[in-house]
Simulated scan of single mutants.
Amino acid sequence: MKKPIRTPLSAEQLEDAKRLNDIYLKRKKESREDPNQDLLNQAEVGERCGWKSAQSIVSQYMTGKVALNLEALLKLAEALDFEPVDVSPSLAAGIRRFDPSASALAGQEAANCPIPESEDLPDASDEFYAFIPQYDAKAAAGLGSENPHVEIQSTLAFKRNWLRSKGAKPEHLIVMYADGQSMQPTINHKDVLLVDRSKIEPVDSSVFVLTSADGAIVKRLVQAPLGQWILRSDNSDKHTHGDRMYGASQGNEHRIIGQVIWRGGDL
């Protein structure tokens, strides 16, 4: 039987693996210098993560033979005591580890946050948070992004309680990325967009991802007289980012993919 062919890791994924290995070597050195600690090894790290074939799995992540995913990154962050963003900025967008010294107010704010904190990560993870497919497609905050070939890169975790509060079902959701400046300051270039594909009817003043002749776009839909809809950019530069019409006569030109219910990214 032939062995399965592995897709080569990207340069970014290889950098993630190197950063993970560097942190592991640092923690191993610290354990060697502390007489009260046992010497850290890859097998112990894997056991802390709850993995079978513990040493082999950790080794594959650290040497770049297998790409990190979000769930593995979060478990390794707890096992080796690091912030996920320090290893993989792309996977860890918006994720923070739980700080037990945080105030009660901060704890209340965390409960309203869609991204899971570390206390939300028991082995029975599916019960507490949902992994949403993260596509490499872009939704242009501008003229349009062509996405002739779309692939799932990985997944992004969202709290199930938060999704329920939004009336969103995981099976209807996808993650995409914004491309361009036309929706600033609401949505910035490279922001993560959580899109609900079940919401395909126009809603006044809500933000949607649509297909167009130019590709995928993200715009605010604003109702106009006579039953028409305007595709509006939030950018105040209307000379560059002017309004466009979306009406019944243009039904073949634009099609709503879904409504944007959350965005995340750098400030």
Rank of each mutant, 00 (worst) to 15 (best):
residue 170 P to G: 08
residue 166 K to W: 00
residue 216 A to N: 05
residue 212 S to F: 07
residue 99 D to W: 04
residue 34 D to P: 09
residue 235 N to P: 03
residue 23 I to H: 14
residue 266 D to V: 13
residue 224 A to S: 11
residue 242 G to Y: 03
residue 151 E to I: 13
residue 209 V to L: 04
residue 184 Q to P: 02
residue 46 G to T: 04
residue 116 P to W: 00
residue 56 S to Q: 12
residue 182 S to W: 05
residue 47 E to D: 08
residue 248 A to T: 10
residue 96 R to D: 02
residue 211 T to D: 00
residue 175 V to I: 15
residue 58 V to L: 09
residue 179 D to S: 14
residue 217 I to T: 08
residue 115 I to W: 07
residue 47 E to F: 11
residue 71 E to N: 13
residue 109 E to Y: 13
residue 178 A to T: 02
residue 126 D to L: 15
residue 87 V to H: 03
residue 39 L to N: 05
residue 46 G to A: 06
residue 185 P to F: 08
residue 1 M to C: 12
residue 192 V to H: 01
residue 186 T to H: 00
residue 73 L to A: 06
residue 196 D to C: 05
residue 95 I to E: 01
residue 157 A to N: 00
residue 36 N to I: 09
residue 155 T to R: 14
residue 263 R to S: 15
residue 189 H to G: 02
residue 196 D to S: 04
residue 26 K to S: 15
residue 15 E to F: 05
residue 259 Q to W: 01
residue 176 M to Y: 06
residue 170 P to K: 03
residue 180 G to E: 00
residue 74 L to H: 13
residue 156 L to R: 11
residue 239 H to W: 11
residue 226 L to H: 09
residue 80 L to N: 08
residue 20 L to V: 08
residue 136 D to R: 08
residue 153 Q to D: 09
residue 254 H to I: 04
residue 201 E to P: 01
residue 131 F to W: 06
residue 124 A to S: 15
residue 13 Q to I: 07
residue 99 D to F: 06
residue 221 L to A: 10
residue 120 D to T: 06
residue 165 S to G: 14
residue 73 L to V: 10
residue 56 S to H: 09
residue 197 R to W: 00
residue 252 N to V: 09
residue 66 V to A: 03
residue 161 N to W: 04
residue 41 N to I: 12
residue 92 A to E: 01
residue 203 V to E: 12
residue 141 A to N: 02
residue 196 D to A: 02
residue 31 S to I: 12
residue 41 N to W: 11
residue 104 A to P: 00
residue 80 L to Q: 07
residue 14 L to W: 00
residue 61 Y to C: 06
residue 134 Q to S: 10
residue 65 K to W: 00
residue 266 D to G: 06
residue 71 E to I: 14
residue 266 D to S: 07
residue 109 E to I: 15
residue 255 R to C: 11
residue 258 G to D: 02
residue 222 V to G: 03
residue 227 G to Y: 07
residue 233 S to P: 01
residue 188 N to V: 03
residue 267 L to H: 03
residue 184 Q to A: 14
residue 3 K to L: 15
residue 159 K to L: 03
residue 57 I to V: 15
residue 111 A to R: 14
residue 51 W to Q: 05
residue 123 D to Y: 09
residue 257 I to Q: 00
residue 66 V to L: 06
residue 22 D to R: 14
residue 221 L to P: 05
residue 109 E to H: 13
residue 256 I to K: 04
residue 1 M to N: 11
residue 164 R to M: 08
residue 49 C to V: 10
residue 164 R to W: 03
residue 226 L to F: 12
residue 205 S to N: 09
residue 121 L to D: 09
residue 170 P to N: 02
residue 119 E to C: 10
residue 52 K to W: 02
residue 157 A to G: 11
residue 233 S to F: 07
residue 168 A to T: 04
residue 29 K to C: 12
residue 88 S to V: 04
residue 19 R to G: 08
residue 141 A to E: 01
residue 208 F to Q: 00
residue 252 N to P: 01
residue 91 L to N: 05
residue 64 G to R: 05
residue 228 Q to N: 14
residue 35 P to G: 06
residue 26 K to Q: 14
residue 226 L to T: 00
residue 208 F to P: 01
residue 75 K to M: 12
residue 157 A to L: 10
residue 186 T to V: 13
residue 79 A to F: 10
residue 49 C to G: 06
residue 128 F to T: 12
residue 210 L to V: 07
residue 119 E to H: 14
residue 85 V to A: 11
residue 242 G to P: 04
residue 259 Q to E: 10
residue 5 I to C: 07
residue 170 P to A: 09
residue 141 A to T: 05
residue 238 K to A: 09
residue 6 R to C: 09
residue 187 I to K: 01
residue 89 P to T: 03
residue 119 E to K: 12
